[in-house]
Amino acid sequence: MEDVVIIDYGMGNLGSISNILKKIGYSSTITNDLQIINNAKKLILPGVGKFDKAISNLESLHLIDLIRSKSSRGTPILGICLGMQLLAKSSEEGVLPGLGLIDGRVLKFSNDDDLKVPHMGWNLLKYNSNCPLYLNFDILKEVKFYFVHSYYFEAENPMYIASESNYGISFSSSVWKDNVYGVQFHPEKSHKFGMMLLKNFMNIPC
């Protein structure tokens, strides 16, 4: 069995995720096959694009209930970028409900203060060192990741915030609840930082 399954629901190029996993020594499968996803030890939910389109793609592939069931069975799940936002209950970008795996909603950055939206580029993280994703990050002088997004996750409970970053306002750049993790940035485009984070995710016991 592969180490991790990357869910393919037609939102973006997933090649760099499987390649960076290979680079750090893990095999992955990119698929939307229900059986393979159901048996996966770990799941990555990637995604670039619009919230409603993503949810309706998941719906039509019968993946919504399956992802929820995997989450309740304790399978470690990592949402990346839009994949993180899908974990919320709702998004200002759309009208469809999210997966609701982490209580929170997705809001749009306001255009005030000459803030350029999308937020795009490398940015720093203030992380919770108790979160398994940031294991061993304390040895680094600075922790930065690459972001491209116009919407951000607002967790209902600060307990769920795994890291914060600043872009005009402080926002949750990653969230975490039990076995479900979400990162707003792109670990697969953040070279050594991304490799460390993904290695940590892959090392989470399942």
Binding site: N13, S16, K189, S190
Partner: peptide, 25 residues
């Protein structure tokens, strides 16, 4: 793009919005 573990900028032959759309996707 699949091999780049860093952000990638691409130029060459872009003359329409559809090309840009496709490159981002």
């Amino acid at each position: 793009a699949s091999e780049c573990f860093m952000p990638l900028a691409y130029g060459g032959g872009i003359s329409r919005v559809e090309h840009i759309q496709k490159l981002f996707s």
